[in-house]
Simulated scan of single mutants.
Amino acid sequence: MIWNPEDYAKNSDAQLKWAQELRETLDLQGNKSILDVGCGDGKITADFAKTLPESRVIGVDSSAEMIAYATHTYTTARYPHLTFACVDARSLNFDREFDLCFSNAVLHWVDNHQAFLRGASRALRSGGRLVISCGGKGGAADVLQVFSEVIASKQWNNYFNEFHNPYFFYSDRDYAPWLNETNFKVERLELVPKDMTHLGKEGLASWIRTTWMPFTHCVPETQRNDFIADFVEKYLERFPLDQNGLAHIRMVRLEVNALKL
């Protein structure tokens, strides 16, 4: 799957907001070493580097397109201690180098969270902190339901004969033993409901185009906008815009805050 970094950067304000909310709960002072796993376009990683200008900050992502965009956008001239690298979340190859391993709005794309947790545990120093926020069990249920109806329709079903849902939404009960097995002490582990909003039909369509590519890219490019418009129409029939013209998406985030033993 090939990401469009520019499009993602324009349509990921909610992800940045949630990441900033998480960061504000952390006591980050002085010289820290921070690993941002699944850094995407780099805006969240750069936000760490701006807030902690003397800290070593590394952003990793499996998308070469995202890493190229982040490296070009957030240069070492502006952020001398910030670097980016193309690394899969399941194959972290660091050895006790970091005080914080952070991952926001990424791991629901990853099919092996236990491999990620093993790599995160290796990457952290003793006493280091793991902070995760990703799609959790029950997340985007309304979106997935509407998609299931759209792709079952006669107009689109031929494109989805071999389709498999690519998202991995886990619960706190799933995560507790995995964290224990990888040498983490849990300080916070919970599913948190979130209300995501997008401005009008256009905002909702942009979000679908940007982040639901496993669905939209099953359809030929010449028909993709029609497919997205079909989804938006059906979604808003069921969940109309509010009085301010906002579309609401019921999300659930799995949030983890744990210490490396």
Rank of each mutant, 00 (worst) to 15 (best):
H164A: 07
H164R: 15
Y175Q: 10
F163N: 13
A176N: 05
N157Q: 15
V150E: 03
S153R: 11
D172H: 13
S148D: 02
P177D: 00
Q155H: 13
S153E: 08
N157S: 10
N161A: 08
S148T: 04
S171D: 09
Q155C: 13
Y170I: 05
S153K: 02
E162N: 14
V150P: 08
S171Y: 13
I151G: 12
E149D: 03
Y167H: 12
Y159P: 03
P177S: 03
K154Q: 15
Y159C: 04
P166H: 02
A152K: 11
K154F: 07
S148R: 07
D172M: 07
Y175L: 12
E181I: 02
F168D: 07
D174Y: 10
I151H: 11
N161S: 13
P177K: 07
L179R: 05
D174W: 11
A152I: 08
N165V: 05
W156N: 06
E162P: 00
E181N: 02
S148M: 02
N165F: 09
E181H: 00
R173T: 09
A152H: 08
N161K: 10
A152M: 02
K154H: 10
N180C: 04
F169L: 12
L179H: 05
F168V: 14
Y159S: 06
V150K: 06
A176V: 03
F160G: 08
K154W: 03
H164Q: 14
D174T: 02
R173E: 15
N161Y: 10
L179N: 03
T182K: 00
S153C: 09
P166E: 07
S153P: 11
N158E: 15
E162S: 14
Y167S: 15
E149Q: 12
E181V: 01
F163H: 13
A152Y: 06
E162D: 15
E162A: 10
V150G: 01
Y175G: 05
L179M: 09
P166T: 09
S171M: 13
S171G: 14
V150I: 12
W156T: 04
R173K: 11
H164G: 05
S148K: 07
R173S: 09
T182D: 01
N161Q: 14
F163R: 04
Q155R: 15
E162V: 06
